[in-house]
Every structure is written in C-alpha cells, then in structure tokens.
Simulated assay, not measured.
Amino acid sequence: MDIMHSVLASYGFNRDSYTIERFGNGLINDTCLVKKEGDRYILQRINKAVFSNPLLIAENIEKIGAYLAKINTSYFFTTPCKTLAGDSIVCVEDGYYRMFPFVSGSHTIDVVQTPQQAFEAAAQFGQFTRVLSGMDIHSINITLPAFHDLALRYNQFLEALVKGNAARIAEVAGLVQQLKEQAHIVDEYNHILHDNAFRLRVTHHDTKISNVLFDEENKGLCVIDLDTVMPGYFISDVGDMMRTYLCPVSEEEKDYSKIEIREEFYFAIVNGYKTFMETELTDTEKQYFFYAGKFMIYMQALRFITDYINNDVYYGARYPGHNLVRATNQSILLQRLLEKEPVFSAR
C-alpha cells in the first residue's frame, strides 16, 4: 500500500485526502478504486510479467487519443490522468501504474446474459476499429508479439508433443488426435495472412464483455483496457467475442453437458459488429464471421492442452488437471460451434 501512496503522490494526491479499495475481477492487472473529495479514479498496476514493456501501451493510448482529437470525432475515449510531471504512466519499484478518471454512471458486466448485451459490446468494438480506420497502422506498437498467431500456437502444440511430459501426452492422446484433425483451421489462417482481402486494422484483441463500459440504460459507452490494442485482423476481435459470449458457461466449467452455442448470441455479435464495420469490411472478410469463432476457440484449446503437456508453466493450475479441463472444454465448444455451421451459414 505504501507504494500506491507513492504513486498517488505523483499525481499530487495528499495521503490523507483519499481512500483506496480493490476494484473489479481482472486477471492480468491489479486494479483499485481511488476516492478523493467526491471524485473517483481507477488506478492500475500493469502486469509486467505479461507486458514486458508497458511504455509501449502508454504510447499507443497517447497516439490514439491524439488521433481522435485531430479528427475531432465525438467518439468517447477515456484517457489516462497526467502526473505532476506530465507523464501518463508511473514507474516505481514494483512496476508501472496508470490512472484514469472513473466514468460517472458507468458499469461493467462480467458475464454476457442477453443477446442485447452481446450486440452492444460488439457494436462498441466495431466502432472502436472503425473510428481508428484512418490511423497509420504501422504507428501502433505491438505490445504482445504473436499474441493471436495461430500458426505459432499450433507449432508450439506440436513441439510440446515431442518435448513435453510423456505421461501427460499419453493421457491426452484422444484429445490430441481431435485437435490434429482440425488443423485445417491453421491452413485457413495461413491463407488469410497472404490474402490482400484481409486488412490489418487497429484491433482490441481482448473483447470479453468486461472490457466494455455500459451506461445506466445498459447501452455501450466505450471500450476499455487497451493494453492489447495492436495491428490485427477482425477475426481476432469477433472470434474472442464468440468464444466468450456464445456459451452460457466459461472455459472453467467441468460439467461439459452445459456447453452449448446460443444461436441468438451469434447473430447479435455479427449484427452488432456490422453496425459500424459493414462498410469497412471487404466482401471476403464478411464471409469469415463463422471462421472467426473457429479460429479463436481452436487456438485457446491448443494453448490449454500445450500448457498441460508442458506441466502448466504458462497458465498455472489451481487443481490437478486444470488445464486439461480447460482444453477439453474448449474442444467441445469448438465441436458445438461446428455443428451449428449449417444454421449460421444459411442466414
């Protein structure tokens, strides 16, 4: 806590003038709510174990803010508070911190419960990419190299099958075979990388529902947590929404009978995203909404099983077999999605 007091002093906050409390359920960054004389702020410590150079994040946010100011758009964008020295990020002994004003009347949602919520979130992520369509894509820093590189994840999976825990490899032979049979998803990804019809854009890359601010009427206000904003393809944002919105249970669910695809949520994502991206997407890209779901679910299944085979060195495990449960969960989710292809392709 003394470190946080030191950080807040950088913003000119007197130690006796504010209170601090934990805020939200984020898994990556530590987040606190700071209350000072009727005002509220969000203070975050950036996870340096995940983001090796947080200054790249700060630079991206500043560039985006400057671009939006230049084009004089009405788009609502949350910018970080400046320290007394004029910095947007504070470096102290335990890492990097940044602070944002709390948006009055706003709230976040942890779990998607209605198609309307899915629609609103998808519209916000689509609007974010659309409003930044005029930015020089090469001016945006890559904060997590190869984050959504499916070819890399598949190669890591194959390498784990050679170098990983032999007992675990034998244990998951059936699941490994199932995932290998879906390797054509990797082939499609490699095709996308070389098809000029697919455009690199400013994309968020972490489109879970909790990264959208909603107003008091549950209408989307804006997207938040811009740490993963990088050049990318639309399949990353749409795919992550499908992976996390379509099923009523998360990747942590052990009762696989609860895994299903909610059709109305699929169309809510597509229609919400198209609200702002209809004229931005190429005709070819518009044919890849269903693929986006396959792409992201398959990649996450690969990452979980790879980590399990490698003795849980990346995600860790809260109980024995945790990553195997996650990998199996995502593999089943992929199968449930594939079963819906005739329905989704017909509309």
Rank of each mutant, 00 (worst) to 15 (best):
R303M: 13
E285M: 03
D307K: 09
I309H: 00
Y314C: 09
Y319I: 05
L302P: 09
V313T: 15
L302G: 06
Q300T: 09
G316I: 06
T284L: 02
V313A: 15
V313S: 15
E285I: 05
F304A: 10
P320D: 01
A292Q: 13
T306Q: 04
G321M: 11
I309Y: 00
A292E: 10
G293P: 10
F304W: 11
A317W: 01
E285D: 10
D283V: 10
L302F: 10
M299A: 04
Q300E: 13
D312I: 10
N310L: 12
D307L: 01
F290K: 05
M296N: 14
Y315I: 04
Y315Q: 07
P320A: 02
G293I: 06
A301K: 08
F295R: 12
I297P: 12
Y319V: 09
E285V: 04
F304V: 06
F304L: 09
D307G: 03
Q287R: 11
A317E: 05
P320F: 00
G321K: 02
E285P: 03
A301H: 07
F295L: 12
Y288N: 08
Y319R: 04
L302T: 04
Y288R: 14
I309W: 00
R303C: 10
F295W: 05
F304N: 11
G316A: 05
K294E: 14
V313M: 12
K294A: 10
E285F: 01
